[in-house]
Each structure stands twice: as C-alpha cells, then as structure tokens.
C-alpha cells in the first residue's frame, strides 16, 4: 500500500500521542492510585434496602482508624442521610445505591462522581482536606423533580467531628414524693473511647457526671430528683453532652387531680 511520506510521519505521531494518553492514564491508575468504581460490592435488591444492615439506616460509620464508611441511598428526589456529616483528613468510603431509578451522586467541582443504579452499590473513597460544606446533587435525570434533588456534605474538622448520639427521657408525670428519674443514653459511634461530662438540669436542680463511653458502645446515666422539692407543676429538664442537648418537661401532679399532662421527649 502506498502511503505518502508526510502521512507516514503523521500516523507515527498520532500513534505516539495515543500511546502517550494511555500511558498517562495508566500512570494515574497505578502510580497515583486513582481507582475506578468497580464491581467489588455485592448487589442489593431495592425492595430489600429497608431490611439491610447497612442501607436500612443510611448513615456514617467509623470502620477503622481515620476510616469512615458512608452508606447513602438515593431516591426520588432526596439523598439519605442528609446532611452527610464527615470528618476532614480521613478516608471516607461512600457506598451509594438507589431505591428506585438511576440517580447520580456528584459533588460539583470535585471528582466525587458516581452513578446510583438500583440493585448495584457504587463504592468510592475520598478525603476532604478542609472543613466546609459541599453541595451534593443528582446528575442523572431521574424524573420530574430531578432538578430539586440535592443534599449536603458537611465536612467537620477532626476535633469537632464525633458520632455521639444522646437521648434522654423522664416519666411524663409523677406524684409528689416520688423520685423523678432522668435517664440519659450516650452512644459513641466512633472507635476511640469518648470521655465527656453529662450535665443535667431538672427544674432548678443541677447534676453533673463524668462519663467514659467505650468505642462503638452505649452508656446510660440516671439522675434522680425529688419531686417534693420541685413542687407541683411543670418542670423543664435539659441534658447536655458536648454540643448535644435534649430537653423535655416533667409534671408533678398532686394526687387529687388526675389530669394527664403531655410530657415531651424525643
């Protein structure tokens, strides 16, 4: 086959360019370790998501030192959880699936980009260097409300970040002379033990207790107040642990009146 000399040079140049592109991309994968979303994850049927250990309750979880997993479910037209709170300077592995149609999982301006396909789980590992807030959007058309589908990724500094959960409760009503028991539960989702102080107030009585919650466990604290001292009527209570606060009311009801007052707890 007769090929003009110039054209031969051109073809050779084109081939060098092509091979060069392939080499740079290979270097990106092997040398820099930019992995592609692959097929490592098990599949999961969308109608079994609610019963799934990981996606049943979409959340962020610590899985190792400086390593977190974020289980995200995309569905028309929201992301769960929202916001997704994660620590800076830690490896975050997102596991993303869809409950219904094909969605996207994209943080504009970054390389956090994946498809959420029903039945499949996309896995991608990222790290944020700086605390801050990033918009999360669905970038695959998913139906009439597609353009409203957004979430938020909140990156907190390492010191600030925790996976602490606080819940607290008292009886709604007590009779005068009975003890008021305030039960507070502190859950530590991180691997390291949590050393903290629980502060509580019931009416005008204050309590304080130091507490150490081991990694991935839960501790209960009970504070007891005397209802006689507080007197008949509604009393506010508050429990705080670090930045978390729970509040409610308890009513001391005299024996003569049988009124039920609605307590509040969450």
């Amino acid at each position: 086959m007769r090929i003009h000399q110039y054209e031969k040079i051109w073809i050779a140049g084109a081939m060098i360019l092509i091979v060069g592109f392939i080499v740079t991309i290979t270097y990106g994968s092997v040398g820099l370790g930019i992995t592609m979303i692959g097929d490592e994850e098990e599949t999961i049927a969308p109608d079994e998501l609610n019963d799934d250990e990981q996606f049943g309750e979409p959340r962020v979880e610590q899985v190792g030192e400086n390593e977190y997993a974020a289980y995200v479910v995309a569905q028309t037209f929201i992301f769960q959880p929202d916001p997704i709170e994660i620590p800076a300077n830690n490896e975050i592995t997102f596991y993303v699936t869809s409950r219904d149609v094909i969605h996207g999982f994209y943080v504009p301006g970054t390389n956090i980009n994946a498809m959420a396909i029903p039945g499949q789980v996309a896995e991608l590992t990222v790290e944020f260097d700086e605390p801050g807030e990033h918009g999360l959007i669905c970038h695959e058309y998913c139906g009439s409300g597609h353009h409203t589908m957004e979430g938020l990724i909140v990156v907190q500094s390492e010191d600030e970040f925790d996976l602490t959960e606080l819940s607290a409760e008292t009886p709604d009503t007590v009779a005068p002379g009975e003890q008021i028991q305030l039960n507070a539960t502190v859950e530590n989702g991180q691997l390291e033990p949590l050393e903290t102080t629980v502060n509580a107030e019931i009416g005008d009585q204050t309590f304080q207790q130091d507490l150490t919650v081991d990694g991935k466990s839960t501790q209960n604290v009970t504070f007891t107040a005397d209802s006689t001292q507080l007197g008949v009527g509604e009393h506010d209570w508050t429990v705080t642990v670090d930045d978390y606060e729970e509040t409610g009311t308890v009513e001391v009801v005299s024996n003569e009146t049988d009124e039920q007052a609605g307590g509040d707890e969450s």
Partner: peptide, 9 residues
C-alpha cells in the same frame, strides 16, 4: 459507564 458500579475496572 466509567462511573457505573457493577462493571469491573
């Protein structure tokens, strides 16, 4: 489909 889960790298 580079961003699709379920297809090996």
């Amino acid at each position: 489909q580079y961003m699709d889960p379920g297809i090996a790298e």
